[in-house]
Nucleic acid binder design. Structure first.
Length: 542
RNA sequence: GGCCCCGUAGCUCAGCGGUUAGAGCAGACGACUCAUAAUCGUUUGGUCCUCGGUUCGAAUCCGAGCGGGGCUACCA
């Protein structure tokens, strides 16, 4: 479809034992915004999301509900699909770890790594909680004073497990991260990983025998593999990178991860270790096993978490921003405004961000209602009032104090460069600054005053042409965040985006044709009042 | 316990050795009236957590303390 350089962006695959909430929606919205921006910038984008469906927790809760694990997975995978459809995600595929295409390729990986010796059968010893039927980590065990959930002491237990020889790749991974500043981002997270890589290396178990809801280890089927290999491999299996025969897409996706473009994994900080260390080690192990066609990702970007009105979200506080709350916000302010808040105020840095109602209203009013929305409204209104709703002509050589082509070129460059550095808020701010510049320009040139004398109409027309054209471009720059609202804004400016138009085409000053009919319409973002009670979701019970 | 980060205006944060410490939002005042009581301008506001040290000079470097937070790998 696009002939640009490939750009592959992924979200984590979400665990089907949970319901979608702000966390999963946030990551997906960020990935979506980047994907949309890159497509607009002419890149050949592939955007992947999906669900992680294996493991003991799914097996257990399915049993409790009297369902098969697959039924439960199907149900909850549907919830994620629906949630992501709701938030406007434009992912190109949705992979599920229980799909044949995935399982077959994971088994090939297991076979290859067992053959090369990087996966071996070893003995696992750990603290076992007999009541919960699960192992607890050394740290958890210590925190709990070596007592099980039911109060009885934890016991040391051993079992046979397959291990991945992470120790063999430890130094290589450390070198990779040390020498490549942007492999792990943001910088604070990179240091955290490097810090831990100074500790002693250890292999990681990659199979279990105490449950069966997973991918059987070829040749030793009482073992199932889960997490590290199962989940991480989704990024490759969805493209058919391990075996095109099971990828089933006729080789069309190979280019997204062949070294010619970028591969960006967007994740939450809780799974950084696996993505920053185990994942590249696995890829190196596959290389060593003869798969030198496989490449490392370009960047693993770990964002932080949303907190709620200054407090952590937790089950005990019941203060999760769940799907119902998200729906309630979108009902009142629109999906686009919700996305704008997520994207411009979100925890993309190493610190958590606060989701607070008053803050939401503040940002909504400042950026959208009083900002872009009002600027759009005053410009379209004046064009209607003074020029019958048709974009006026510019005078020859009209220098009105703002070098718009230069301003636009600069803001566009800023947006492109920020987005390339995964600074989504920075990229969007560039668009908003264009609309702020229009407000300032109107105040300084005062077309409404000039319009009182008909002799000034050519000048008024020139001013309003420049305003409308700048707003058109601002809308283009903000569209990856707010597709529907910006499409509406562009529609009213008589300038809808046509298929195939790229950022380069669309940000060219002068594209707007005089004579184009312009429509004011209702407020794009009606002003919000913080005195209204916070939108809250009614639980649907389903 | 170990490793690491942060504490700067009411709020969110930038500045990380050198002129009178900045931005956005909120507040106050003024201008304007095309616009969603919107916009534009001016402006109020800070012992830069505390104490001690290094330095001609520290928010910025070092030490101690107080306060907050992260990571600690076999949980998906």
């Amino acid at each position: 479809m696009s002939s640009g350089r490939p750009f592959y962006i992924t979200t984590p695959i979400y665990y089907v034992n949970d319901r979608p909430h702000v966390g999963s929606c946030y990551t997906t919205i960020v990935a979506d915004c980047i994907a949309r921006f890159m497509r607009l910038a002419g890149r050949d984008v592939f955007f992947l999301t999906g669900t992680d469906e294996h493991g003991q927790k799914v097996e257990k809760s399915a049993a409790e509900k009297g369902k098969s694990p697959q039924e439960l997975a199907d149900e909850n995978a549907r919830h994620f699909r629906e949630a992501f459809e709701f938030i406007g995600s434009t992912h190109d595929d949705f992979i599920r770890t229980t799909e044949d295409r995935h399982e077959k390729q994971v088994q090939e990986v297991l076979k290859a790594l067992i053959a090369s010796g990087d996966i071996y059968l070893g003995e696992f010893e750990g603290w076992y909680d007999e009541g919960q039927e699960e192992y607890v980590t050394e740290n958890q065990a210590r925190e709990r004073d070596y007592t099980a959930f039911n109060g009885k002491p934890l016991v040391k237990a051993t079992e046979q497990n397959y291990y991945f020889r992470l120790t063999k790749y430890w130094d290589r991974v450390r070198k990779l991260i040390e020498e490549n500043e942007t492999f792990v981002r943001p910088a604070g997270k990179r240091s955290e990983v490097l810090g831990r890589l100074k500790d002693e290396a250890r292999d990681v178990p990659v199979s279990r025998t105490n449950f069966s809801w997973g991918i059987p280890v070829p040749g030793d089927e009482q073992h199932v593999t889960y997490v590290w290999i199962d989940a991480l491999m989704n990024y490759m299996t969805a493209l058919g990178k391990i075996d095109e025969g099971f990828g089933g897409v006729g080789g069309s996706r190979q280019k997204y991860w062949d070294g010619s473009g970028e591969v960006v994994h967007l994740i939450g900080k809780e799974i950084l270790w696996f993505h920053a260390v185990i994942w590249p080690a696995l890829i190196m192990a596959l290389e060593d096993a003869g798969r030198d066609d496989l490449k490392l990702p370009t960047t693993v970007y770990a964002h932080s978490f949303w907190i709620r009105e200054g407090k952590k979200m937790s089950k005990t506080l019941g203060n999760f921003i769940d799907l119902e709350t998200i729906h309630a916000y979108c009902d009142r302010y629109g999906l686009d405004a919700f996305r704008w808040y997520m994207l411009t105020q979100g925890p993309l840095s190493a610190t958590d961000a606060d989701f607070a109602y008053e803050h939401f209203v503040e940002v909504y009013n400042a950026d959208l209602a009083n900002g872009f929305g009002n600027a759009h409204s005053r410009v379209t209104n004046m064009i209607a009032k003074y020029f019958g709703g048709e974009v006026p002509l510019q005078e020859e050589n009209a220098d009105l104090g703002v070098d718009w082509p230069a301003t636009i070129a600069q803001k566009t460059a800023e947006a492109v460069s920020a987005m390339g550095a995964v600074d989504v808020a920075g990229a969007l701010k560039a668009g908003l600054e264009v609309s702020n510049a229009v407000d300032l320009f109107i105040n300084e040139t005062a077309p409404f005053r000039l319009a009182k004398d008909e002799a000034n109409l050519p000048r008024v027309g020139t001013i309003l042409y420049q305003c409308a054209e700048a707003l058109r471009i601002a809308a283009v720059l903000m569209r990856p965040a707010m597709p529907d609202a910006m499409d509406a804004a562009l529609e009213r400016l008589g300038s809808p985006i046509r298929d195939g138009q790229t950022l380069q085409d669309l940000t060219r000053w002068g594209l707007l044709r005089p004579g184009t009919s312009v429509e004011k319409g209702d407020a794009l973002f009606p002003r919000a009042d913080a005195k209204d009670p916070e939108p809250s979701g009614v639980k649907t019970g389903a």
